[in-house]
Design a protein around this nucleic acid. Sequence first.
DNA 1: GTCTGGCACTCTGAATGCCTGAGTGCTAAA
DNA 2: TTTAGCACTCAGGCATTCAGAGTGCCAGAC
Lengths: 347, 347
Amino acid sequence: MQKALSPRAEVLLKALIERYISDGQPVGSRTLSKQPGLDLSPATIRNVMADLEELGFIRSPHTSAGRVPTPLGYRLFVDSLLTVRPLDSAEIYRLGDELSFDGDPKHLMESASSLLSQVTNLAGIVLVPRQEESFRQIEFLSLPGGNRVLVILVTHSGRVHNRVINVAHGYSAAELVEAANCFNERYSGRPFGDVRRSLLADLQEDGDAMQRAVKNATDMARQIFADDESSGPDVVVSGEANLLKVPDLGDVGRLRRLFETFSTKRDLLHLLDQSVHAESIQVFIGGESGYEVLDECSAVMAPYQVDGRIVGTLGVIGPTRMAYDHVISIVDVTARLLGGVLSAEVR
Amino acid sequence: MQKALSPRAEVLLKALIERYISDGQPVGSRTLSKQPGLDLSPATIRNVMADLEELGFIRSPHTSAGRVPTPLGYRLFVDSLLTVRPLDSAEIYRLGDELSFDGDPKHLMESASSLLSQVTNLAGIVLVPRQEESFRQIEFLSLPGGNRVLVILVTHSGRVHNRVINVAHGYSAAELVEAANCFNERYSGRPFGDVRRSLLADLQEDGDAMQRAVKNATDMARQIFADDESSGPDVVVSGEANLLKVPDLGDVGRLRRLFETFSTKRDLLHLLDQSVHAESIQVFIGGESGYEVLDECSAVMAPYQVDGRIVGTLGVIGPTRMAYDHVISIVDVTARLLGGVLSAEVR
DNA sequence: GTCTGGCACTCTGAATGCCTGAGTGCTAAA
DNA sequence: TTTAGCACTCAGGCATTCAGAGTGCCAGAC
């Protein structure tokens, strides 16, 4: 069944999809025959289109409409037909300009996401899987009022977490510093999972066997790490409002469910988890992902790396009918830029 | 013109608006005449409705439709006709249950906002005007890598800000602690504006006149405070997706602009600033606010206080046709609850 | 003076039918 | 293998019709 497409059929499919992407209307044989480059009569084109339809690459919404690409058609298109349009230097410059690091990685993610959404006019999305993180440094700060302590946790990638915890009795500043020092010496550089397991193991040992400082730190850190597990990886979505302009997603009910998916983030994470392990740019088309909310939607995602190590992934979500040639370039460049900014700052 | 409405007209207007809020259809005289409680013939009701229309409280979308309330009508309704429906204890319990403080005020705001949106099925909104904040404590933490310092700033209300700054040369841990101590002694308890001005003044003095530690701290803090001013107050909006289910806001173009307003937050802030100074619950109806995006929308906002001082405001945004009686109670209770949680934790 | 029943009038929205334009599939000829 | 021609189908625009809902106003009842 999956016999290789004839070169002519490929050219035709490519032309059809490009036309559909730019116009949004089903494409008929007459329209295509007028396309410069392929000199064929409408009738011939109809024959080829009939083949393409039989193979599942295109379909007609109804008898007397033109053809539109199916998800399978898009798949073939982005995988082997698409000619990616590289950005001109002005655009790259503009992208780089907008991405600045102010010390807070969360802000950086937000600006990357909103940058993506502005440039593509779609929804931007940036994901940082927290599993990969490793522990760098912890500090305890006593707060006025006696038995409350502010715990500051710095991860290897430079993220900072704060948490106020309640403790049984007050600690002196010196005690807190000592506790932090011990803890840092013991765990710095180890992945979170390690630290968490270690903390649980320490719980088993009898307290007296440990130094008092370490014990204090352990008690306090346990609250933090326990919480951290549940909070999972982080996603930033922005520019959802752009999707309201897209005529393809006209159905308000569908849009609503889509927005709900964005705001719960859980399903989104699950989907994007797949792209974290990919080496290069990935395109998810239509309901391929298994989420029926995302029928009619595509996602273009690229991993970004710090010092050669993939630390997250970023991209856009939009209608299946999007300008893949342009979007892919933008996502690609943005991923490199974000990786670059992070690499420069983290070392 | 604004002669007092006859009691009967008031009763009728109230019944009409209640009916319209629950049904969403223009209300005709026949429908109202069947309403238990007011025993009037349709014809009589028509006469009264004609008066109400002349006074601008209701209007008819077209000749043979019933009447719908105008913004002015809603105004009168919420101001003097509405009987607020108090929550039953189960509902209050449920609300209180969902609001828990985990040490991060940002999380608390987010959970309050999402709580509001879930319970009302509208968009929840929580605002913390940062102007009111005062400085409590600063700490400097040296990061591995030499000349980078993590600055942690704790405000009076318990908010924590992090920022990584680059410094000219490395500092020892002891130097940093000393700097922080000096700075805290000097400024703790003073409002941000004060501190900022003071920092600028110190810049004028010649460095040698100051203790070295204070000078270090001043240099670093200046970067933080300068930034902090620009970031302005904080808004959390959630549950926007709920507005997509509202049939009244069917116009996709309008919805899009509304969502853009939410995501830029600027206009929203400007609008809500007005409610910060109000003592009690406030209802903004339709385009009253001057923002034409918010035609067809109403906001119910209540300030919340910590230890008797108003620190922010919270509420919901939804269609003008919303169940005010219920929503007002929910917003009111949530504001008290949030105030309560904050008061308990901050002291 | 106030309320009510009745009646003519208006307007929306759904249903129907008609028509045109676009596009197809098939067949036969080049 | 390609092309031209032809019959066929269908969506969408347009006008028409029709029922239902609601109004305004008037004249009579209380």
